[in-house]
Amino acid sequence: MTAGGLDRAALLHLAVPALLFALQFVLPDYHHVNLARVMVLASFAAGYNIVFGYTGLLSLGHAMFFGAGLYTAGLLAQYAGVAAAPGFVLAILAGALFAALVGILALRTSGVSFMIVTLMFAQAAYLALHYFGDYTRSDEGFVVPAELRRLFGLALADPATRYFTALALFTGTLAVCHAVARSSFGRVLAAIRENEERTRMLGYDVFAYKLVALALSGAVSAAAGAAYAMLFGYVGAGLASIQYSIYPLLWVLMGGAATVLGPFLGTLAMFYLVDTASGFTSAYLFLVGLALIALVLFFPKGVLGTLRERALPWLP
């Protein structure tokens, strides 16, 4: 890789948040709030990309990490009156810890077994939300008190504050992903993805690397979950259901696995696909399904992955 390539990548990663920053002044209200939500969900997808894209581990349980953040922030606010900032930090810690615990067990497996084990843990967590329904209000969920949804004295319900917070979160995850992609840590992860045995032979503690990757991924996913609870004011089991384990997979595959900007692009594309299609037909899932099939037929590596392969090899 040339130095020029590095520069271009870094520039691109600075340009995207800058563009998103500028966009908020010209976007109509509806797209303004959509973009804020897409940035939060894209952060979730970016967290997922760390294990799926960079490390090559297909998890079907990331809803539990998103949910860990969602519920840590939400329950602490609801029952202990903890405000957004400390709630956010605690949620990230909870996500990392939870992911590490799951990882200690689940990373003993690989491939499809790993997929099932993560799926099972996530399902158990989802059912636990119902079992402790007296506190979580299970599927119905609860509304986070408005007076606690404040960050540094600013109301997170305010559109500008929300957009800024979402942008800050997104820029943060982008920086994390950029760092992972560029660091020696990231290169070891890629080596594990390409050939785990060889990496082990080279003397790397593969298990430890995977565990750190999963914990990092869990932390980022939980950050997105906490942000969702605080920015949009709702916490419910539906947001921790299996669907929310499939979504990040979908978004990442759509945008391009193991690309830094792929998760964002995939999330954005899926959102507008559903939103536009549902406008003229109630059978919009049909279009979404067909779009997914067309995508893998013609862009099998996702949009950015294909682009990188064919035209822009320097793309991170």
């Binding site: 969920g141 949009f232 004011g233 419910g236």
Partner: peptide, 29 residues
């Protein structure tokens, strides 16, 4: 959000399932 910011409706009504209501209520406010 779409109703409020794009269609600019006067009011929203008709939501049924409770989990959807709880999620939508704070945003409506």
């Amino acid at each position: 959000e779409k109703f409020a910011t794009q269609h600019k409706v006067d009011a929203v009504f008709g939501h049924l399932f409770s989990h959807v209501v709880n999620a939508a209520a704070p945003r409506a406010g």
